[in-house]
Design a protein around this nucleic acid. Structure first.
Lengths: 198, 198
DNA sequence: TTTGCAACTGACATTTATGTAAGCAACCCT
DNA sequence: AGGGTTGCTTACATAAATGTCAGTTGCAAA
């Protein structure tokens, strides 16, 4: 009766588990990311996940790293485009918003914070920090640029959580928050260019 | 040995429970708001809370209403001041940010959303909506005003969750997000005044 | 004083998440 | 082929949260 199951390498197993955990997080929220639920998605048992990640919080920490790296990579890609002139300000806005919304970083971040498990958030914060340093063309850090990035990220996180709901209540289109962020970021870039030329 | 315990009215009991739940929410996060924990704070048993609120989600829903009313009341107060010329733009910003940060509305909102219990969020969304309609001096709804309010609320929520952490990572002062929000809101108000005079 | 309503409790039962330990079995190496 | 390593599972243990229910008792009204 038992179907012969292929044995996976630790790396394969961890990767499958993290992908499943990520999907579960985005679809049903952080509370749905339990050992049992994740395991059943990849056709394994919850004891299997304990075997690979040591504990439930071990899985969460790994998930945070995974999402942090993913988000960082996605945005870094946009930065490259932006530098070569291909990308627009809107692209950066969209990518940042998507990172928190569709990619689940927002859900994970808030969950980590709300449960007091702040350490697990470090990788994501680090990824954002790295990204910001990178935006400052050549790694130089600019105070105003930091402020604008702070505003952008905060709006992206807020939008991922209650954006759809609040926009609906205010009778605004879903993309209203992105429009606002784009407008503000363009103002900031204009100011920056002017000051840079002086 | 048993200390004679005073019997409370349902209103008293509910009020004490909600206050305790709110404190617990702000201090230790949504996951700490359990029947047992809340009950022990007010010297009662968890069965008592079930008696008054029907279920755990009943308590959560009541808490959402309670916080929504509180937040709405606090901000409405600032609006009044603002109208009489006493309050500044910064006051509105501070109150909005505090509502989500210190008053726990942010923690509750995100928790509700993340756990899929979106209905319980309705009262808070309604409160914000009501507030925004009120800002538009006389109840008339203004599209740009709505957009600016959306941006303000999203930043306030984001700031309540990762503001402190992110600002630290970017080497910005804790109030950086509020500064940004204030600047943007003042720009918006200036534009609004110009258009209104034309 | 008595009586009835309901606030309140204690002792259950249930469900769910996490964790442990022992053993099975697939895969690699010799 | 044979044996050791280890991915993986089954079975069990534990703790916490929610919920049920019968029963107790404070309190107000008759």
């Amino acid at each position: 009766m038992s179907v012969a199951k292929r044995r996976l390498s630790p790396e394969e197993s961890r990767a499958m588990a993290l992908a499943a955990a990520r999907d579960l997080l985005i679809e049903a929220g952080p509370q749905a990311v339990t050992l049992k639920a994740v395991a059943s998605r990849i056709g394994r048992t919850h004891a299997n996940l304990l075997h690979h990640f040591g504990s439930a919080s071990g899985l969460q920490k790994a998930l945070a790293e995974y999402l942090g790296a993913q988000v960082c990579g996605t945005i870094a890609q946009a930065i490259l485009k932006s530098r070569t002139g291909e990308g627009t300000v809107r692209d950066i806005v969209d990518l940042t918003f998507d990172a928190f919304d569709k990619e689940g970083a927002g859900a994970l971040s808030s969950w980590m914070l709300l449960t007091g498990n702040e350490d697990a958030l470090d990788p994501i914060v680090d990824a954002i920090h790295e990204l910001v340093d990178d935006i400052g063309e050549g790694g130089h850090e600019d105070r105003e640029m930091h402020q604008d990035t702070l505003a952008l990220v905060l709006m992206a996180l807020g939008d991922a959580l209650i954006g759809e709901r609040l926009a609906g209540s205010l009778e605004l289109p879903r993309h209203a928050a992105r429009d606002m962020a784009e407008r503000q970021l363009e103002h900031a870039l204009e100011r920056w260019k002017q000051e840079h030329n002086c």
